[in-house]
């Protein structure tokens, strides 16, 4: 198995997911099955293969850039920006308090 219980707990915490205790074992098995399958890549000769990040990179060329200008067409009013928020008040999104100061 590539992934054990501790791995599942660690990555679930990173991903802000909660895996119920009775599902951890099964999750580890399912993820391991995929990773074990992915081990097939070790049989592939990757000599001289730089990582591909962008499909079609060769022909598509470098990133187009944007002029430093305002785009008022896409800009939202505070009312629109907040319309889909689960909770908002006085032009601000409301969230439960941040108890741990983890902002890097």
């Amino acid at each position: 198995m590539s992934i054990d219980r501790e791995d599942v707990k660690r990555i679930a915490e990173l991903a802000r997911l909660e895996i119920p205790e009775d599902r951890i074992e099964r999750t580890a098995r399912e993820l391991s099955a995929v990773l074990d399958y992915a081990a097939a890549l070790r049989r592939l000769d990757l000599e001289g293969c730089e990582p591909t990040v962008f499909a079609g990179l060769g022909a598509a060329g470098p990133a187009p850039l944007r002029a430093d200008a305002l785009d008022d067409v896409r800009r939202l009013t505070p009312e629109t920006a907040l319309a889909a928020a689960p909770e908002h008040e006085d032009d601000a999104f409301l969230v439960p308090p941040v108890v741990e100061n983890l902002n890097p």
């Binding site: 944007r66 430093d68 200008a69 305002l70 785009d71 008022d72 896409r74 800009r75 939202l76 009013t77 505070p78 920006a81 907040l82 006085d90 032009d91 601000a92 999104f93």
Partner: peptide
């Protein structure tokens, strides 16, 4: 700059909260 890093919203300060936003920066 006049606009933000990855969208055309104003990069200015002191505006009404959540008024310098668009789908990209939100």
């Amino acid at each position: 700059t006049v606009s933000k890093m990855f969208c055309g919203c104003p990069a200015e300060f002191g505006a009404r909260p959540n008024s310098n936003v668009c789908p990209v920066c939100l």
